[in-house]
Design a protein around this nucleic acid. Structure first.
Lengths: 232, 232
DNA sequence: TGAATAGTGTCTATCAGACATTATTCG
DNA sequence: CGAATAATGTCTGATAGACACTATTCA
């Protein structure tokens, strides 16, 4: 029986890092420098190191690619992918992670030679990513869309402090829909622990200044916010 | 860089197979015949075989342990576990799967020598399962509890055809709560695609015979059923 | 008939969605 | 003031939860 086992298996960690810029969901991609898929775009990732767990590997990769530390970001395991033909070099099982980060002020500068670029996720849906990364990206986006319904992860896309309008825009962009500002405000302000008031306000160029909030302690949103809402 | 990679990694698939018997959630466990953890109870599982993907491996293991084919059961990936110290033999990454099966008429007869036994899941929560299997089991049960809220997987625990009372008992047992029969009936019968009527009835020893249903085509339950409901 | 279970009907508080109105800022 | 955005208030239809009531079977 032992001789039927797969040997020489490699385990990698791949990251689906999402942010929101210019009114669209963007995903962090790197250009591959080696075969296979040389020159193609791929999800950032790498091999598990000795003595390193998958969560730690994902955190390390994320820091290498974005400079972001574990705090103030959202990172969750997406799922594992291990179809035998997913990597032409041999049997590579990857554990995919999903990260939500706020729009970063500086362009990403990875610690290694790879250039990491923010790319509109929409353009990649039918596009050509290396390996099975298009499928992993699609799964990540679907998880994100579902997560906004019943968790508070949407706030992970916002740089603190943020306004309720900014939070609403996250929902509108990820769900590709319009939400009624009034009802959205009522919903999130009455969700215990979703938001903590700062008491401060931020003046825009025009109009009444908006109250500023930070992420609250809650991670689950009960009752959920539903996607079914019609546009105006 | 390459020399920092973990080498000699093994990938296994472990199964959290849940069913409901005697009014309690039961999990399928095997007694380990080899070290480490010889004699201890563990989740059924095994190594990925050559040319076999994780989903296929999980289906194969499930069939070996329960005799159940892919149809008429629910199987989903739970998540991957790969902490470096989870297996004393070396680096073993496992991909855990969660399966819901109806209460099986015959006792389980595995195709290999291991004895598979149904064990009340509650007894295992603080109990001593091999490896990190207690944690995997806990994650699986939590996933099951959440899944009942917004998917139709509860019906996977029922042998077809089933009554609405039987379906309600699934919810009550998994959630460890009581649900109002009248409101539950209204909810599930008005959820499009949850149930399909058979037109038949089943007479019990006592009382009015119950209408019989089969699983409907829907897999998502919108709006969800909430756990918050108070007991009677 | 009575016991037991299945199934229907009804009342009410709550809430999502629609939308009107007021508040606060800048030019 | 007018324009623009934030924030509050109000109305209504839908529904979850509570619970009364009817239906159907067996002994």
């Amino acid at each position: 029986m032992s001789r039927e086992h797969e040997t020489g298996v490699s385990v990698t960690v791949d990251l689906v890092v999402l942010t929101i810029r210019d009114g669209a969901v963007h995903v962090l991609l790197v250009e591959r420098g080696n075969t296979p898929y040389r020159g193609a775009l791929a999800l950032p990732g790498g091999y598990l190191r000795v003595g390193e767990g998958p969560d730690a590997a994902a955190l390390r990769e994320l820091k290498e690619e974005t400079g972001l530390d574990g705090a103030s970001l959202h990172l969750e395991q997406l799922r594992a992918y291990g179809e035998p033909d997913r990597d032409p070099r041999g049997r590579v099982v990857t554990i995919a992670y999903l990260a939500f980060v706020p729009d970063l002020p500086e362009p990403v500068a990875g610690s290694d030679a790879r250039r990491a670029v923010w790319t509109p996720a929409r353009d990649m849906r039918a596009g050509t990513l290396a390996f099975d990364h298009a499928r992993i990206l699609a799964d990540g986006i679907e998880r994100a869309r579902a997560g906004l319904e019943y968790t508070t992860v949407a706030a992970a896309f916002c740089r603190e402090p943020f306004t309720i309008s900014e939070l609403r825009e996250v929902y509108e962009i990820v769900w590709e829909t319009r939400l009624d500002p009034s009802n959205f405000r009522r919903k999130v302000t009455r969700s215990p622990g979703f938001l903590t008031e700062t008491g401060e306000r931020r003046a825009a160029d025009l109009g009444r200044p908006a109250s500023l909030y930070r992420r609250g302690p809650a991670s689950i949103l009960n009752p959920p916010i539903f996607r079914g809402q019609d546009g105006r």
